[in-house]
């Protein structure tokens, strides 16, 4: 645990002033361009729309999601390539499925992490936690502080390699927890602490 709550780390969410981080709004403005994720909040035809949460996740999350994608895509392709090398007569029938997996797999590995990065955002207020996730199918979730039961930090092996951590906020609902993944580790620590203190200070029966 390299706890460096340096200003650089903690200021990251608030100081998301780089144009890339403000992308979502801009992205939805160009629906014509192919691959434009349209990752802004729900933009309604008239009146109300959902605004994206304030903070993006850490930029390193792109690397983490790429790693995750490779873990899924690479092994079958490598096995098929190895077999093709070892069994010359069946080479064509081994390379064909390898290609069939590799091409969409490559697209997935390149597109998914970047798309996710534009969608995944989070925000906490005094009263609620608000997080957006997904890429093709997108989800925005809100839970009030008074209904939060537990706040946990989770660090998977690949996430650790990138110095990242995830925060999981559970409520009494069986529909699943709010997960904010791909945060800087020090920031996640800080967030867990703040949320825990905040939920304890907020009266509520959490049901």
């Amino acid at each position: 645990m390299t706890a460096h709550p340096t200003p650089g780390h903690t200021a990251r969410p608030g100081g998301s002033a780089s144009p890339g981080n403000l992308g979502p709004g801009a992205a939805s403005g160009s629906p014509g361009s192919p691959g434009s994720p349209g990752s802004s909040g729900a933009d309604g035809a008239g009146g109300l729309s959902l605004r994206p949460p304030r903070h993006p996740v850490d930029r390193r999350a792109v690397g983490w999601w790429t790693g995750q994608a490779l873990v899924i895509v690479a092994p079958p392709v490598l096995v098929l390539l190895l077999l093709a090398l070892l069994i010359p007569p069946a080479r064509f029938w081994l390379l064909l499925p390898a290609l069939v997996i590799a091409v969409p797999g490559l697209v997935y590995t390149l597109v998914m992490p970047r798309w996710r990065y534009r969608v995944h955002r989070w925000e906490t207020t005094d009263d609620a936690v608000y997080a957006a996730s997904g890429w093709i199918w997108q989800k925005w979730r809100v839970a009030p502080m008074s209904r939060i039961q537990t706040v946990d930090m989770i660090r998977g092996p690949i996430q650790q390699m990138f110095g990242l951590a995830g925060v999981t906020v559970t409520t009494a609902s069986a529909a699943g927890a709010i997960k904010i993944n791909g945060l800087d580790r020090a920031l996640a620590d800080d967030l867990v602490e703040r949320l825990t203190a905040r939920t304890q200070a907020t009266p509520g029966d959490a049901t």
Binding site: W137, V142, P144
Partner: peptide, 13 residues
Amino acid sequence: IIGWTISRSPFQR
């Protein structure tokens, strides 16, 4: 009600 979940598919967007 203890929270909201809003989901959108590409078609819905």
